[in-house]
Design a protein around this nucleic acid. Structure first.
Lengths: 113, 113
DNA sequence: CATTTAAATTCATATATTCTAATATTTGAA
DNA sequence: TTCAAATATTAGAATATATGAATTTAAATG
């Protein structure tokens, strides 16, 4: 469960608008391919490609119901990920006062870009 | 803070082993470029490129201390992300019994790959 | 069995990412 | 000032990713 593929690879996979949308939908319940086609406005082949990639990574799975494939979420890490993706943050982290080693340095440094 | 760049773009950026390592180090405290060079075993230019990308995304920032640039973590979303990246999960999510709509279908569907 | 529907696969192309080598910039110190 | 150290930038090659069109597979149904 933790090591089918690495967390980095999971992140890479999730870091795509269509795939986040797919996973988010699946977090609400079972869906089949044509459902996604409608609401994502993507070609069938592309939806299928995304689903296949997510499945090979162990994030989702499906069961067969007639000629439908009903996809569902399988990996709990994804739920946590979706949760923080939707979370709002109020402020930035506090920056350090100065360099903790030399006790010098100004914050923030002056820079153009 | 929430909309400098989108969450998807942040994920894309974080989904790289070197950049995760950089962010994880920064979550423990301020570091300068040559620190990363040592412990990541990457070329200086490459480290610099990663840092620049992270900074342009608003995830990190630096201040100047002499000729050192002391980088620090700026974006709170990254902390949450790092936390779940390191979290262990015990089991998969429970799959549905059958198709919630048709009340049919077997789980899991038989498939070869 | 032929047809239709749902979904997957293959292949080609466009685009993006990553990394290296080389060069440039900035700053402190001799 | 000149030199060296710390870091950044640029350019190019290699690799990976994304997508669409066409084709294929599998199942249901007449």
């Amino acid at each position: 469960m933790n090591n089918i593929i690495t967390r980095v690879e999971i992140l890479k996979l999730v870091a795509h608008p269509a795939r986040i949308a797919i996973l988010d939908e699946l977090s609400k319940g079972v869906k089949c391919v044509s459902d996604f086609q409608d609401f994502l406005e993507l070609r069938q082949s592309n939806v299928s490609q995304h689903l296949t990639a997510l499945r090979h990574a162990g994030l989702i799975d499906y069961y067969v119901d007639g000629r439908l494939r009903c996809y569902f979420l399988k990996n709990p890490f994804v739920l946590d990920l979706l949760e923080i993706i939707k979370k709002e943050y109020e402020s930035e982290l506090p920056g350090p006062e100065c360099c903790p080693v030399t006790k010098k340095g100004k914050y923030p440094g002056i820079r153009k870009n």
